[in-house]
């Protein structure tokens, strides 16, 4: 079922493969965007744990940026950040 497409209907609307959320870019839902200040970031990774979309990009244990293809602009990261290094801005 690796080549399954959304227009091939399964009984009960089952989605017969994993990782399909990747194909659905939710960045277009955003009205405000998080702005991350890399210099002041303490790398506590609380934003990474809190993001419901998995949009905080982490490599080698460090936040490297925010994936704007998927960030819905919910602002949870900005609220949760203990050091105020993420701010919600227009765009």
């Amino acid at each position: 079922m690796k080549d399954w497409q959304a227009n091939k209907l399964m009984p009960g609307a089952i989605i017969p493969k994993s990782g399909t959320a990747r194909e659905y870019k939710t960045g277009g839902w955003r009205s405000k965007a998080p702005k991350w200040n890399e210099e002041k970031c303490k790398q506590c990774l609380i934003c990474w744990i809190s993001c419901p979309e998995g949009a905080i990009l982490v490599k080698d244990g460090k936040v490297r940026g925010i994936d704007m293809d998927y960030c819905k602009g919910c602002g949870i990261c900005a609220t949760e950040c203990p050091f105020d290094v993420i701010k919600m801005v227009e765009g």
């Binding site: 079922m1 959304a6 227009n7 209907l9 009960g12 609307a13 089952i14 989605i15 017969p16 493969k17 994993s18 399909t20």
Partner: peptide, 18 residues
């Protein structure tokens, strides 16, 4: 073989066909 049960299927989807 991971699968998803109970997804959303709204206006742009195939609810009626299901």
């Amino acid at each position: 073989n991971p699968v998803t049960y109970g997804p959303f299927d709204g206006l742009g989807g195939f609810f009626m066909e299901h």
